[in-house]
Computed example of a mutant assay.
Amino acid sequence: MTLPIRIGVQLQPQHAPDYGQIRDAVRRCEDMGVDVAFNWDHFFPLYGDPDGAHFECWTMLAAWAEQTSRIEFGALVTCNSYRNPDLLADMARTVDHISGGRLILGIGSGWKEKDYDEYGYDFGTAGSRLDDLAAALPRIRARLEKLNPAPTRHIPILIGGQGEKKTLRLVAEYADIWHGFTDRSTYPGKAEVLDRHCAAAERSPAAIERSSGVPEGSVEDMLAEADALVDLGVTLLTTGVNGPDYDLSAAQALVEWRDRRLNG
């Protein structure tokens, strides 16, 4: 089965001193036909003023669940370290119900040391954080199966990362969507590694939707990269936008490109 091309927008929750600016951007994404709206799970801006305005991830997702009616949404990605995995599963189930079944549970092992230090989490090592993610994923799955009421649907799990030994093995075992932070040059090699992990896990690689960001810059370069990625098998393409203005011109170009491909 060939998956449809989908367009995502990461509304980076930074440098917007008024939450209304983010609320408006989500509305505009839904109105223009974007398929998935993402935020991210950090406590401080990732670029620009490091102590600039910033909002928290999951309380925002609950607001998006009430505000929207069609668009899917989630974090790109939740940091596993910041919440007990059983609690995270319950949060996801609750937001799933609020939205009527439109949440994507994006998750990764975490990497931003300032977030850990400022909020009192143990940063550990890249390896220990991946081990923690490996321990959390079966707990999330098990808790989702126990909750009453149950989720409205199988909540898709998106795993972000491209580490060949651990991350892609977890993708093969648990993910419905893989966001590899790859481009047209790096995607094929990582996809081959994922295919091998899928074989070991006795799972079809076709069961995992492939997701990638597209570069900032000219519309021509962005769409050329999108064409190349789709030809390689990527079907969810996401552009990032920053506050406070949340310029969605690149997203509009991607939506129009998607529609031309689907109708051509």
Rank of each mutant, 00 (worst) to 15 (best):
N148E: 08
K190Y: 01
D117Q: 15
D35L: 04
V219L: 10
H42Y: 04
R102T: 04
R261P: 05
Y174R: 04
L158Q: 06
V255N: 09
H97W: 04
Y19R: 08
I71H: 07
A251D: 06
G120V: 01
N263C: 07
E202P: 02
A199S: 09
V214M: 06
M32I: 05
Y82C: 00
D86H: 15
H54W: 13
R102V: 00
L144Q: 01
Q67R: 08
G264P: 01
P17S: 07
W58S: 01
R28Q: 12
G217W: 03
T238A: 09
R169L: 07
P138Q: 03
A250F: 10
N84I: 11
S212F: 02
G243S: 08
K190G: 07
Y19H: 08
G240E: 00
E202A: 15
S99H: 03
V77C: 15
G233S: 05
Q162L: 14
A135Q: 09
Y119P: 13
G163C: 08
R23M: 07
A134N: 00
I177T: 08
D117W: 08
G33M: 05
L61M: 12
A250Y: 04
D195M: 14
M91F: 10
K146E: 09
M32F: 04
T238M: 02
Q10L: 12
H54C: 15
A126W: 06
R184D: 00
L76T: 07
D51M: 15
P149W: 06
D231R: 06
G110Q: 05
T152V: 14
L223E: 01
R203I: 04
